[in-house]
Computed example of a mutant assay.
Amino acid sequence: MKKHLIIIGFMGTGKSTIGKMISQSLRLEYLDTDEIIQRDRNCSIPEIFEKYGELTFRNLETGVMEQTVQNTHPSIITTGGGIVLRSENRVAMSKYGWVFALHAHPKEIIRRLQEDTSRPLLQGGSLEERVLHLYEERKRLYQFADYHIDTDNQTEQQVANQIKDIWFNLIKSGDAK
């Protein structure tokens, strides 16, 4: 049975910020897979990439996803942008949650990430080239989501309200329990 509200999307689409807003508004537990990994490893994501590599990070990410979806109470779960790279993560999210994919145009993502130096996959080469390459590589992997929301030209509050409206309709119809 689906019980969680899971927010996925490419980096820079607002997942964490919007997830926190919804969590506070609905008074539901907020879980961010990247934050959990950093807390459990006592290490930043860039440090994990540097010391152990992307494969280790992806393994940690899958383990955290498996744990978070097993919560017995509904939670707001946000993920890193690359969690969709593994099919087992997409299956778990679909099985245990209503998945909301946040989208933004690559130009908007580049604008939002212009000053962000904390993302290991954006290192090396130009920001525009890295974003465009990763965006093209991943965009089809977000298609499994139950709902797709364009964050371009919307405030974070507008996006959060849109997700909450859908969630309330799911609850009202008996689909989200």
Rank of each mutant, 00 (worst) to 15 (best):
E128H: 06
C43E: 15
G125A: 11
G14R: 15
L26A: 12
E29L: 12
K15V: 02
V84A: 03
I22R: 11
H4P: 06
R58V: 13
S94V: 00
E128G: 05
S23G: 11
L85M: 12
L132Y: 07
W98F: 15
A104K: 10
V69I: 14
V91Y: 07
S44E: 14
I45F: 06
Y52R: 13
Y30M: 13
G12I: 01
A104T: 01
T151E: 05
F144R: 01
E156H: 14
A145R: 01
K51R: 13
A101R: 06
L170G: 13
L28A: 04
F144T: 02
F168W: 02
A92H: 06
E137V: 01
G14H: 14
S126P: 02
Q70K: 15
T62G: 07
D32C: 12
R58M: 12
F100L: 09
G12P: 02
H73S: 08
L127C: 08
K2R: 14
Q143L: 03
L31Y: 11
L55H: 07
I166E: 14
S75C: 15
Q157V: 04
G124A: 05
N169A: 15
I48M: 10
Q123K: 15
W167I: 09
H73K: 10
P46M: 08
H73F: 11
Q123W: 05
I6P: 10
G14Y: 14
P120N: 03
T13P: 07
Q162S: 12
N169D: 15
L102T: 02
H73C: 06
K20C: 12
T68H: 00
L141N: 05
Q143R: 05
F100K: 09
F49K: 10
Q162Y: 02
F100A: 12
G53T: 10
Q162F: 03
E115D: 13
M65N: 09
M11K: 05
K51H: 08
F10E: 06
E115W: 09
P106K: 11
N161M: 05
R140V: 05
V64C: 09
N42I: 10
K15S: 03
H4R: 02
I77V: 15
V91S: 03
S25I: 00
I18F: 08
